[in-house]
Design a protein around this nucleic acid. Structure first.
Length: 817
RNA sequence: GCCCCCGUAGCCCAAUGGCAGAGGCAAACCCCUUAAAAGGGUUGACGUGCGGGUUCGAAUCCCGCCGGGGGCACCA
């Protein structure tokens, strides 16, 4: 009998794993094992690992280790998402280079990961801030550029005043910077974009492949974000303007109800058509709107504002003159930046109409009161009125008919619109991938030739990195001033860096051939390993990383470099680790340190606590769980394995039948539970198995019975998914020396041992349990009915013939008196 | 405001149409012990947030509330 000492086990087995390297992915082309690709979202090296990492990686490792046990050839790599702002901010503060802070943190995390016992293939490690990684960002950028998928345009963009850089739409959450929480403002800037909108339809459609594999809420968030809608484009003449103006509407059936016309205040059209006598008022209004933060501007309960532009538009179907207004509730970058306003059937238009005394014309009879009276628009279905040829039609009929009319007259057509905007990828910061473009006065935007990549970062540090609204790269004049690759004339490098979400959009492909020098990845290796079978990470990337990565995968597919169209077949979103009902934070002083928890309870106890706390997608409140209790259980399980008195290899055949059945039933259940990601329940089953073995040793057939060994060995293997150190030591104590339990092979439940001799059948009278019968599992319905009706206990509740008898052999009979 | 998810024992959670409790925490008690710790064991719902409905049978399905969490929020 020996003590369970987690810290000693960690030291011992960590070293053994480093010698054995049990988790290296098989590279042999002749390897016929089925392959599996398991990936955890790679960490940002912000410091040491924290509790959140502890949870994700513990959960991901259950899946990876299960696959190892099943004998698959598993790819389970690790790397670091090591470009990004925190390193830059730290460098400014310490007058250092961002790389120093970054790579020191990476080493700290790597050491912690090794101690944490995650089954990584360390040979494939990568860091996105390595030139050998980011050169391929640049190479990919060039390919996107060639295909017209990377382009530069001017316009209003999201600007974070705190981080001093622009942001993509996806990185603005409720008007605030996704990173730092500052209020985002709008600025007019020329920036690089990826044309993700070209892929909107496919990004939406291909989600059908992910149905069932991804959490429904992530799919919903992406669908909402892409925001597909169907409607019509309608051409309106504007008096005094040559060209007609397009508007997009999802309700072309209400065209006869348009009583005014609104142009986005920041759209070029508004500036163009405002009449001279209205210009002063318009410009004052535009300046006022520009001052508002996104939060204020986009608030739905804000009162409508706007100005009349002095012009009229002509309704194409009835020739009515309707006034043209400018307002900030119409967005310049959606649809055509202008709308037809139908106040009777759109609440926003109605609010505007009532504020400015514009007419309200009902064209859909919904049976509800007049919106002009009530102030409540009636957007619902009904039959059309006051609409000439559409009168009497339903919404669907009217839409079909009006599109037909518009098309015939060349005044419009059916149209599809998306809420998704192009991905703004340039950033005015230092610690990222330089955009490989050279600006030449004569040749324009010239990509740096592939054979001159990577464009490495200039050596800037400390104060030189301080944000000043333009990229720090601009101050490195030696670096900036270059010859044009095309004409040899004087030219300048682009001084922006790429959004770090570019790095993470394809890293999963790089893992397939991390040292590859002829391209971002070896196409053959990606064919072998891709796509990812299981991805694990936080839900906060629902419309960020996960959307971008799907987009990249589709572009690479179109380039013929990958043969799949979706990168992540299954996605698991783990919850957060909180403490006392609140997110852990320094300011609240309620932080729990992963390293300290491990020092106090051991790696296995911490991992077990993470996995056992509840369903993986639920948050874990560390105040509700008990790593000390986890440690107790592990000690208990260890003692069971240590107490086994039979020799390894002994036949289990003659072992205690009751325990054998229990063991095999547990194997069967745990297998199903692990496969369906119900890890907390699987752990509960292992606790039961441990108790059953304990009981067999103490007050049953004894420690020498082969069934006890069978139970203990199954326990060691199954426990290895969650508590690898305890499992290894237990396995060794079981006499399985010189090997690792991680590759021992998943136990197989023998069907013969899953069969029950008898089951308890519940007999109910009017839904209440009145008797229990021990019956054969294969009993027939008729026989069971007879037994139930013959029971004295049952008959006491019956007078006369029952009205109905429901038999669900072999478990239940319900008698309706 | 709209949409989605969730409410089971003091707490974390099982049970997905068939006996409300698998597992854990906490609590109480018992065994072991000179004692304590460690270890082993025993004990818990009068009904699943509330009110209706469907069904032979509902935690589970449907409707309406209440409470919690999340997403979207001028996208025409």
């Amino acid at each position: 009998m020996s003590e369970y000492d987690p810290q000693a086990l960690q030291a011992k087995w960590q070293q053994r794993w480093e010698e054995l390297e049990p988790f290296r992915a098989g590279e042999d082309a002749a390897d016929t094992r089925e392959r599996r690709y398991m990936l955890d979202m790679f960490p940002y090296p912000s410091g040491d690992l924290h509790m959140g990492h502890g949870e994700v990686f513990a959960i991901g490792d259950v899946v990876a280790r299960y696959w190892f046990q099943r004998g698959y050839n598993v790819l389970h790599p690790i790397g670091w998402d090591s470009f990004g702002l925190p390193a830059e901010n730290a460098a400014i503060k310490r007058n250092a280079h961002p790389a120093e802070w970054t790579y020191a943190n990476i080493e700290t995390q790597a050491t912690s990961f090794r101690r944490y016992g995650i089954s990584f293939d360390w040979s494939r490690r990568l860091h996105t801030s390595d030139p050998e990684y980011y050169r391929w960002n640049q190479w990919l950028f060039n390919r996107f550029f060639e295909r017209g998928l990377a382009y530069r345009k001017g316009g209003l963009v999201n600007w974070c005043p705190n981080d001093q850089t622009v942001l993509a739409n996806e990185q603005v959450v409720a008007g605030k910077c996704e990173r730092c929480g500052a209020d985002v403002i709008r600025r007019e800037l020329t920036q690089w974009y990826f044309k993700i909108t070209d892929y909107a339809e496919r990004l939406l459609k291909d989600m059908e492949q992910l149905e069932g594999g991804w959490p429904e809420r992530v799919l919903t968030m992406q669908r909402n974000w892409i925001g597909r809608s169907e409607g019509a484009d309608v051409l309106f003449e504007i008096e005094g303007r040559e060209e007609p103006v397009h508007v997009y509407t999802t309700r072309p059936d209400t065209l006869f109800g348009a009583t005014f016309f609104v142009v986005a205040v920041d759209a070029a059209l508004a500036d163009e058509i405002v009449t001279d006598d209205r210009r002063e008022e318009f410009e004052a209004y535009r300046a006022e709107v520009a001052k508002l933060s996104d939060i204020e501007r986009l608030s739905t309960d804000k009162e409508k504002t706007g100005v009349f532009l002095g012009r009229h538009a002509i309704n194409p179907v009835n020739g009515e003159r309707i006034p043209v207004w400018a307002a900030d509730y119409v967005l310049s970058d959606y649809g055509h930046g202008a709308i037809m306003a139908v106040p009777a059937h759109d609440q926003r238009d109605l609010d505007f109409a009532l504020k400015f005394g514009l007419p309200v014309k009902v064209v859909v009879h919904t049976g509800l009161a007049d919106p002009g009276e009530t102030g409540e628009a009636t957007p619902g279905e009904g039959s059309l009125v006051n609409s000439g040829p559409l009168d009497g039609l339903s919404k669907a009929e009217a839409i079909a008919k009006i599109i037909e009319i518009l098309r015939a007259e060349g005044k419009g057509d059916a149209s599809v619109n998306f809420r998704l905007r192009d991905w703004l990828l340039s950033r005015q910061r230092f610690w990222g991938t330089p955009i490989p473009i050279i600006h030449c006065l004569d040749c324009g935007e010239v990509p740096v030739p592939d054979d001159q990549l990577p464009v490495t970062l200039p050596d800037l540090r400390g104060e030189a990195l301080a944000p000043k609204g333009v990229s720090p790269l601009a101050s490195a004049t030696d670096w900036v001033n270059v010859e044009c690759p095309k004409c040899g004339g004087r030219a300048m490098r682009d001084t922006d860096t790429m959004d770090t979400f570019v790095d993470s959009s394809w890293y999963y492909l790089r893992y397939c051939s991390p040292g590859y020098t002829d391209g971002p990845f070896d196409v053959e290796q990606v064919r072998k390993w891709g796509p990812i079978d299981q991805y694990v990470g936080g839900v906060e990337h629902a419309v960020l990383h996960l959307l971008y990565s799907r987009f990249f995968t589709k572009v690479l597919h179109d380039m013929g470099m990958v043969d799949f169209t979706e990168p992540f077949l299954r996605l698991l979103n783990q919850g957060q680790v909180i403490n006392g009902g609140k997110a852990m934070s320094k300011s609240l002083g309620n932080g729990v340190d992963l390293g300290q928890q491990i020092d106090a309870y051991g790696v296995d106890a911490v991992r077990l606590t993470m996995v056992f706390a509840g369903p993986p997608e639920d948050d874990i409140d560390w105040a509700d769980v008990s790593p000390a209790a986890s440690q107790k259980f592990l000690a208990r399980a260890f003692r069971v394995m240590d107490d086994v008195a039979s020799e390894p290899g002994v036949s289990f055949e003659g072992g205690d039948l009751e325990l054998r059945k229990f063991t095999h039933r547990t194997i069967d259940e745990v297998t199903k539970l692990v496969e369906s990601h119900r890890f907390n329940v699987a752990v509960a089953r292992l606790m039961e198995l441990t108790s059953a073995a304990r009981k067999a040793i103490d007050s049953g057939p004894g420690a020498a019975d082969p069934a006890v060994r069978e139970a203990a060995e199954a326990l060691a293997v199954m426990l290895s998914l969650v508590a690898p150190y305890t499992a290894e030591e237990g396995w060794e104590r079981l006499g399985r020396t010189g090997t690792t339990v991680a590759l021992a092979g998943w136990p197989v439940a023998e069907p013969a041992l899953l069969v029950q001799d008898s089951v308890t059948c519940v007999v109910q009278v009017a839904g209440k349990v009145r008797d229990r019968l021990e019956v054969s599992p294969s009993i027939s319905e008729d026989e069971l009915r007879g037994l139930a009706l013959g029971s004295d206990k049952v008959r006491a509740y019956l007078d006369g013939e029952p009205r109905k008898v429901i038999v669900r052999a072999p478990k239940l009979v319900n008698i309706v008196p």
